[in-house]
């Protein structure tokens, strides 16, 4: 190589190397002030360094996080943990289970999955959570996993880059944590939503004609759902799929929306009374929860009171739903 060219490459190397100290300074000073994701960290910690060693685990999106209280389910089996994460649909759960959970955690005896009818389309990617991965897993995914985009892993590894849009807010000492949850009540992956006094101008999910809110399942989302069901069948783990209750202003309005019906059909087809169970709390098992405004944070999320009542109901239903062959799941 020509000497002039060599010099340029040396300069380029110096230029790129200088990014490292700048990066470290940024990480040292900025990461602490924008590190917000308390429930995520503790949940991933539980996977990588098991404390609870749960036998009954809960997967799903944020409504599961705020709705299923492990404390109440402990009456069935004291080893319960709620692994629900914001925006975690079937696509995410498959990634999460095969790439992480299976390799680090004990095989659960029962999985409860809340299927979010709206978020079934959301392709949250496991790469978004690279911040919580141990370095070995991070490198393994970065170098050898072609399903997870390179950039997702890199951009989410350090809080000050992951939450870069929050830095300014944090520096202006504005709050950056999600204040709708009561974090002081956090328990085994569950955090209740605050009680709102009034729901305000809420529309029911079926009567909502706003075009931007139109719910539609993409073919990929339906395929992901089927893939998830198949995954746990192959793993031979009993799974209870849940459609969590929604708030309806009128009794007459709870006709299933076509998109919800589509998901219901898929799940109902798969129910085998052995490993696949399905509980729909809107259409098959409605209750006064669906109509009483005082139980709700918003139209799709129960508040603390509502979630406790719901989990009680779920506990009873689970006990009667699971066939005798599986009864060893529950510790009397």
């Amino acid at each position: 190589m020509h000497n002039d060219i060599k010099l340029i490459y040396k300069k380029l190397a110096a230029f790129l190397l200088l990014i490292a100290p700048m990066f470290m300074i940024g990480h040292y000073f900025l990461s602490p002030i924008v590190d917000t994701d308390f429930p995520y960290r503790s949940k991933f910690n539980e996977v990588f360094n098991a404390q609870e060693n749960a036998e009954v685990v809960i997967f799903g999106a944020c409504s599961g996080l705020a709705t299923i209280n492990p404390k109440i389910l402990e009456a069935l089996n004291p080893k319960v943990y709620n692994f629900s994460l914001h925006g975690a649909g079937p696509f995410y759960i498959v990634q999460w289970y095969t790439k992480i959970f299976k390799n680090y955690y004990k095989k659960p005896k029962l999985i409860i999955i809340s299927i979010e009818m709206i978020e079934v389309n959301q392709p949250r990617n496991i790469g978004y959570d690279s911040e919580y991965f141990p370095i070995s897993l991070f490198l393994k995914l970065l170098l050898f996993d072609r399903e997870i985009p390179f950039k997702y892993l890199l951009y989410n590894k350090y809080p000050f880059i992951k939450n870069r849009f929050l830095i300014l807010r944090a520096l202006l000492s504005k709050t950056i944590i999600d204040e709708s949850f009561q974090w002081d009540r956090y328990y085994k992956g569950y955090a209740p939503l605050i009680a709102k006094e009034k729901l305000g101008e809420m529309q029911t999910i079926v009567s909502n004609k706003n075009k931007s809110m139109e719910i539609k399942n993409s073919p990929e989302a339906v395929a992901d759902l089927k893939r998830m069901i198949q995954l746990f069948k192959d793993e031979n783990i009993p799974v209870v799929y849940l459609t969590l209750p929604y708030y309806y202003t009128h009794k007459s309005s709870y006709l299933p929306h076509p998109a919800i019906q589509e998901i219901r059909d898929v799940l109902k087809q798969e129910v085998d009374g052995k490993n696949v169970f399905y509980l729909d709390y809107n259409n098959d098992h409605p209750s006064n929860l669906n109509y009483d405004e005082s139980f709700w944070y918003n139209q799709t999320h129960l508040n603390e009171n509502g979630s406790n009542i719901f989990t009680q109901k779920l506990k009873n239903d689970l006990f009667h739903l699971i066939p005798p062959a599986h009864k060893n799941i529950f510790v009397e």
């Binding site: 230029f15 200088l18 990014i19 985009p149 950039k151 997702y152 880059i161 870069r164 830095i167």
Partner: peptide, 20 residues
């Protein structure tokens, strides 16, 4: 000159989304 390049890089990292 390098400061200008670093400035651009910081701009790229902090103002861009990570979706390709």
């Amino acid at each position: 000159r390098w400061a200008a390049y670093y400035f651009l890089i910081i701009f790229i990292v902090f103002l861009s989304n990570f979706i390709d």
